[in-house]
């Protein structure tokens, strides 16, 4: 009996060790920009945090078949948008989507998403060891006019 308990305790200790070594990915503050009639695409934003380095390798949603991960970059004066196959998420460093970097595009929507609706998103990650896991979130649809990030405050520059 004692032996059984001891081995059970050992097994659970082993289990918790294994568990803490696996990447734990949390997704917070997921939201989608509201749309007006006639629009067929919109952006989704969130903050991803992982306890281990991992990679976002896929996003899907029941609202549309076409979901893409995009990166925005300044090329001189021109802001460019390019699709990404995957996105590296570093360990313990929250990765926030927004106007200076990444966003998810929901494309070819059959009807515009209105403020107050909720959009299910399934994010698939692949760990460094090649193990796949997924996180499901419900993204809140906010106003079309919602700023993607706080207005920049620390770039004051006077020019003559």
């Amino acid at each position: 009996m004692n032996k059984t308990l001891a081995s059970l305790a050992m097994a659970s200790a082993l289990f918790s060790v294994t568990f803490s070594a696996a990447a734990e990915v949390t997704v917070t503050d997921a939201w989608v920009r509201g749309m007006v009639k006639g629009q067929t695409e919109t952006g989704a934003y969130m903050t991803i945090k992982s306890t281990e380095p991992t990679k976002l390798v896929g996003v899907s949603s029941p609202v549309t078949k076409v979901v893409q991960l995009h990166e925005m970059k300044m090329d001189g004066d021109v802001m460019t948008m390019r699709p990404l196959k995957s996105l590296a998420v570093p360990a313990d460093k929250p990765l926030s989507f927004g106007p200076d970097g990444y966003h998810i595009m929901l494309i070819d929507l059959k009807k515009p998403l209105a403020k107050g609706e909720s959009v299910p998103l399934k994010l698939t990650f692949r760990s460094q060891g090649g193990k796949k896991s997924s996180v499901e979130v419900k993204a809140e649809v906010r106003a079309l006019t919602e700023p993607s990030a706080p207005a920049p405050m620390d770039h004051a520059h006077m020019q003559h």
Partner: peptide, 16 residues
């Protein structure tokens, strides 16, 4: 352009 996800709505909100 209207399908612009970040920059254009943010610019227009800022102008409002």
């Amino acid at each position: 352009y209207t399908r612009c996800p970040d920059v254009c709505p943010t610019t227009l909100s800022r102008m409002a």
